[in-house]
Design a protein around this nucleic acid. Sequence first.
DNA 1: ACCGTATTGGAAAGCGCTTTCCCCATTGCT
DNA 2: AGCAATGGGGAAAGCGCTTTCCAATACGGT
Lengths: 340, 340
Amino acid sequence: MAGERAATLSDVAREAGVSLATASRALNGSDRVVRPELQERVLAAANKLGYTPNANAQAMARGSTETVGLLVKDISDPYFSTIAGGLADEAEKHGLLVMLCNTGGQPEREQKFLAALRRQRSRAIVLAGSDTADVRHTSEVADLLTSYLDGGGRAAAISQPRLPVDTVVIDNHGGAKALAEQLVGLGYRRAAVLTGPENLLVSAERHAGFAEGWLEATGSEPTYVSDEFSRDGGRRAMTRLLDDGPKVDCVFAVNDLMAVGALAACRQAGVEVGPDLAVAGFDDIATLRDVTPGLTTVRLPLADIGRLALELVLGKPSAELRKRSVHGEVVLRESTPPRS
Amino acid sequence: MAGERAATLSDVAREAGVSLATASRALNGSDRVVRPELQERVLAAANKLGYTPNANAQAMARGSTETVGLLVKDISDPYFSTIAGGLADEAEKHGLLVMLCNTGGQPEREQKFLAALRRQRSRAIVLAGSDTADVRHTSEVADLLTSYLDGGGRAAAISQPRLPVDTVVIDNHGGAKALAEQLVGLGYRRAAVLTGPENLLVSAERHAGFAEGWLEATGSEPTYVSDEFSRDGGRRAMTRLLDDGPKVDCVFAVNDLMAVGALAACRQAGVEVGPDLAVAGFDDIATLRDVTPGLTTVRLPLADIGRLALELVLGKPSAELRKRSVHGEVVLRESTPPRS
DNA sequence: ACCGTATTGGAAAGCGCTTTCCCCATTGCT
DNA sequence: AGCAATGGGGAAAGCGCTTTCCAATACGGT
């Protein structure tokens, strides 16, 4: 095993009795025409030797690779994994390989990965979910990105219009606002928002959108409780709200995960979601479509967002920054029944 | 923009007034000692020029890369994304980059990706969830893998003891069997299994394990209905079972996704899960821990499995194939109350 | 017949690094 | 003082491929 080193192109050329150049041309097809007979011989030789091109060598010679980088906060979060799935599918269509970088929301890691991707001479980079409002970090990322772009790289972001790259903008504000309006339409009057950390952009946008819609429709402001942007955060926030928050008839958790946590907290506290208290989320995570009671939420075309991001980043570069907006759609389910 | 081509090592060397060799040594640290003063100068020059090593060139020169490949059936499935998360974390610790390949369960894609990973000279490859019982395909994958290994690559699989590589074996059989025993202990007597496609190994193993446990404990065989290995498959299978299957008091869906589908089907049919009919799943997907009624399932340490797989594949190669077993733990929840 | 023009194969120059090998200076001993 | 050993820098040989640039051959036209 591992004895005979992998066959190289020169091995193939020798075997076929042609020059290196011809062998390369025969295999790559494009470029210039090679006499069919020779082409045949080269292909046969390559096959016989079990030749596999060395992508690194190709990358060097051609000056470009077949990989794209994807930065996500947490791939095990269904929100990101769904986006990743869409992006991966699209990448496959283009014959590209995806480098997955799990930042865990840590700025240093994010920067480290960005550097690594640059070293790898990745064709493109897509950033998903590093939406922090931390200015210092954002500007460092922006710098890194700029020098990557200067080096001929391409980059796009998902939902972070603060980076100097093409962006798939998710209309968090509008979606949350629409949700608020619908809830008011259903008869709810006193709302609370369960938000993530203050500096998380998505969270802030959804919170603001909801508050705006609510204010316009009812003239009152929703209260809010903030905690982690996760299932447990939702549970804790809801518990706090139940224990010593103001009395409300409806709760908006800024994402489905938090909403599910809220559901759990309600159950534990003996509050029946639906009749006693309405709860709504955001994202419409597929895995969660069957919780009981059915969770009212704002559906985001997550897989499409991933696809779109790749399209954007692979498309013709243009001078001005491109933005592609994606809107959510309110989905009403049993967790927010019409109020009688 | 994009004007001045990226600084290369020779640029750095020139700037620092040293040779290429010295520059390389200064930056890589290891190798041989460089006088501190020169080292300093090189570092400064690199910094000034914004030098980024070219990973492809390094890969060529060193003959090894910093990437590992991960093949999964569907990254948007929480089962795989959780594994991927664990693996990605572990990879980060080792300074490795993860190439994510979404096979969609298509054999051709799987082979294509394997070839691509080989071309990239990936350090290692981890295969998750290509557990098909399709002999032809399995042997083709095995061939591909073998030649990859011969070329000095390393590979490991998750839960597919049929491939000639180190494997993290998930004890599907044992977990399902234990579940069956517990259910019988709770007083259930007539069971049905909702399985995935016949040729899906995980599904088959869980089915068999459950059947074995059930048979030993009750003397009777569970019936089964087979459909897709997904939420919708579970819903359809359950509907069929409810419509024209035999009367049972307990249903085991071979994974949580199917179980959730089954839950939905029950709800729609007016069957109350728990009192009327018990339902259990497998995996203990985190996102699903809050469904109502709480889903009895077999918990798998998914993130650990990902971590373990990487450890295995990065560990010292050994002549004989290594197997690492991972066991599930039955988690009883409200979907399977003690039968009165 | 002759010359200009396609057409196609091959030699060789990189692409940006690492690493071997060689050499010059010190340093330490006898 | 003379010599071996040691330490550290540099030249250059690759790593495996692509792609110019040349050269050779064949072809068409007048």
